[in-house]
């Protein structure tokens, strides 16, 4: 339990630096805003490609309100806490703050066919929103999924290179 807490803190710290990084792992969403209602309701190729890139930017991707360090919504907070408790490897995780970009905020809803934030992707596959993340956490399904996808921090003793000092 104790090591998990440390891992979750580490996750929060590191992911917030990912989220705070200006442009590195993040696609450019500063495309011109379409003005007509018709266009706003349809996902532009440009937005879709940008979201494709975001979804593929790490094995575990969370679209959230705020950053992992300072979530701006209780459901985003709960989701990031669950991922921290699970021990998701910060190197395999990316968070995107939808509040920073209205095109992403609206685009991700249509992209995922899911009307709410947060949204979790693992290996580019949509997993669900906060209720699903929490219920999978409680049932053990999330631990199984994350383990199968090899996105968790390795337990002590099985770290790569441990034997090849």
């Amino acid at each position: 339990m104790f090591s998990r807490t440390i891992i979750s803190r580490q996750l929060l710290r590191q992911t917030s630096s990912i989220a705070a990084r200006p442009a590195a792992a993040r696609p450019a969403f500063s495309t011109p805003q379409p003005t007509s209602l018709l266009f706003r309701r349809l996902l532009s190729d440009q937005t879709r490609q940008a979201i494709d890139k975001a979804v593929g930017s790490a094995p575990v991707v969370l679209f959230m309100k705020g950053t992992p360090e300072t979530p701006q919504c209780g459901f985003s907070r709960a989701s990031i806490q669950v991922l921290g408790l699970q021990g998701v490897d910060p190197d395999k995780f990316a968070a995107f703050n939808v509040l920073e970009d209205s095109e992403l905020r609206e685009g991700i809803k249509e992209y995922s066919d899911w009307p709410t934030i947060p949204q979790l992707y693992v290996d580019k596959e949509f997993v669900g929103g906060c209720d699903i993340i929490v219920s999978m956490h409680q049932s053990g399904e999330l631990a199984k999924l994350l383990d199968e996808k090899r996105v968790l921090v390795k337990e002590e003793g099985e770290a790569e290179g441990a034997k090849t000092e």
Binding site: D113, W114, P115, T116, F126, V127, G128, D131, I132, M136
Partner: peptide
Amino acid sequence: QPARHRLVYGLLRDEM
């Protein structure tokens, strides 16, 4: 769960 949630979201699409 995602399929079920989408079903409910779909029913309440306008309200959301």
